[in-house]
């Protein structure tokens, strides 16, 4: 009798365990994005302009350099931060200034931002400044997009074409 009870007990335990595993490995369903919404991924990897303009070495400076180190121009390493602004339907949705990476601040500035918005037509304006100027923008892109639900719109910078692109 005890053996039968133990068998029944084991069956019960295995059943509960299996039910727990199968339920929580598939349920409840998860929706990463609300219905009727779309997603904008604003992402750049971009080097800002040099903070100091390149200039020719002076004769004295060249004389102090080893012969194999003598270059025509002297360039500082530090880059300007990159400022991004994104307007959606005429309102500022995101603004961010990305510092250059690297200990000498000579690397690329990076931005990655997700913005969820309702599907449908939207007026998008993207502006990027990669100089030390305090006003004005180096690059700008305006477009009207018609987003379907769950669509991902990527805003990136194409360095070969030298412009902001919407993908």
């Amino acid at each position: 009798m005890k053996r039968v009870f133990n068998w029944a007990g084991q069956a019960l335990l295995y059943g509960i365990f299996a039910a727990f595993v199968v339920i929580f490995s598939q349920w409840p369903a998860y929706a990463p994005l609300a219905p009727e919404e779309a997603l904008i991924k604003l992402s750049f990897v971009h080097h800002g302009q040099r903070v100091a303009e390149c200039r020719p070495y002076t004769a004295d400076e060249l004389a102090k350099l080893a012969p194999n180190m003598r270059a025509p121009l002297k360039c500082g390493r530090e880059r300007a931060p990159v400022t991004i602004e994104l307007d959606i339907d005429g309102a500022l949705a995101y603004r961010y200034t990305a510092a250059p990476s690297g200990l000498s601040r000579d690397g690329a500035s990076t931005v990655y931002k997700r913005l969820e918005l309702p599907a449908g037509k939207h007026r998008i304006a993207v502006r990027m400044r990669d100089t030390t100027a305090t006003s004005g923008f180096t690059y700008q892109h305006d477009a009207t997009v018609d987003l379907v639900p769950a669509q991902v719109l990527v805003i990136d910078f194409d360095s070969e074409r030298g412009e902001i692109v919407l993908l």
Partner: peptide, 29 residues
């Protein structure tokens, strides 16, 4: 028995142009 009763199925090929609408989600992992 679990694998036979409730087979694990893929949820459609990945498509980076869209966000998956609804996922049968593995909350344990």
């Amino acid at each position: 028995i679990l694998a036979a009763i409730r087979p694990v199925r893929s949820q459609g090929p990945a498509d980076l142009a869209t966000v998956p609408a609804t996922l049968n989600y593995d909350w344990l992992l």
